[in-house]
């Protein structure tokens, strides 16, 4: 009979964290921030159909980075959670905080008890009813949850991107200004990201009951081309 090697718990956790971080760092990053009308989420994503940013419920959006199959499974679970809750109680009882907690519990559980941690970082964003207190819940692979009110960056390159965004951030900027700053922060000094590799979603009060909408193609291009501080062109809704 062979005896299993003893491995210190610290070492196990460190190995798992490294494994998860490596997986997450392979993909591109994503930024979520507030602007004058709501919440903006910008992801670098060359695919038009495999989304990183999606709708969960009337005022709640989801975004994920890392392994697609893992965060998409979490996204679907979130939709199921929200729809079941909204059906059992009322639409207004569905909130991002409770969903973010459930996600954090699950990610933490998997991180400590399963062989392989989930190689994802996710964002649960919520549009505030009064338009002043939007929420961005950033949940890491180990279940760590951070509640942001201004902006948050997910992915391997989070640190430098967050530093770049910190310089330009303004809570009252327009959609165009916010988008340009997010794209510049994502790209960094050496790269310019075009509309064809951007995925953009917003939660905005003007969209009716379901506040989530995607900004696609030409609408992204015209927002990017808009002069800073200039007029705001009509945004085409997907």
């Amino acid at each position: 009979m062979t005896m299993p090697y003893y491995v210190a718990p610290e070492q196990v956790m460190k190995d798992r964290a490294e494994y998860a971080q490596k997986g997450i760092a392979r993909g591109r990053s994503l930024v979520g921030c507030v602007y004058d009308d709501g919440v903006l989420i910008v992801a670098e994503n060359p695919s038009r159909t495999l989304h990183k940013v999606s709708e969960i419920y009337d005022r709640v959006a989801f975004a994920g980075v890392g392994r697609y199959n893992e965060y998409d499974q979490l996204r679907v679970a979130g939709v199921r959670h929200a729809d079941t809750k909204g059906f059992a109680y009322s639409r207004e009882d569905v909130d991002a905080r409770s969903l973010a907690n459930v996600y954090a519990q699950y990610l933490g559980q998997v991180f400590t008890h399963e062989m392989k941690p989930l190689e994802v970082e996710i964002l649960v964003a919520e549009l505030d009813d009064d338009g002043s207190d939007h929420r961005l819940y950033h949940i890491a692979y180990d279940g760590t949850i951070v509640d942001e009110e201004r902006f948050t960056v997910l992915g391997g390159d989070a640190e430098p991107i967050a530093q770049r965004l910190e310089h330009s951030f303004d809570p009252n900027w327009t959609l165009g200004a916010a988008l340009r700053a997010c794209v510049a922060a994502l790209g960094g000094p050496d790269r310019t990201l075009g509309p064809e590799i951007l995925e953009v979603g917003t939660l905005a009060a003007g969209n009716g009951r379901r506040t989530f909408s995607r900004i696609v193609g030409d609408a992204i291009a015209s927002l990017l081309a808009e002069q800073a501080g200039g007029g705001r062109p009509a945004v085409e809704q997907a």
């Binding site: 679970a77 199921r80 729809d83 079941t84 059992a88 459930v102 519990q105 699950y106």
Partner: peptide, 28 residues
């Protein structure tokens, strides 16, 4: 309320009725 996750072989797919049947059989 826990996170409604299902193994791939038993996934209820896009049917809300099926999800409700698994999560809240009484309501279903």
């Amino acid at each position: 309320m826990s996170l409604p996750l299902f193994p791939p072989t038993e996934d209820p797919g896009p049917s809300f009725v099926a999800v409700l049947g698994r999560v809240d059989p009484l309501a279903a």
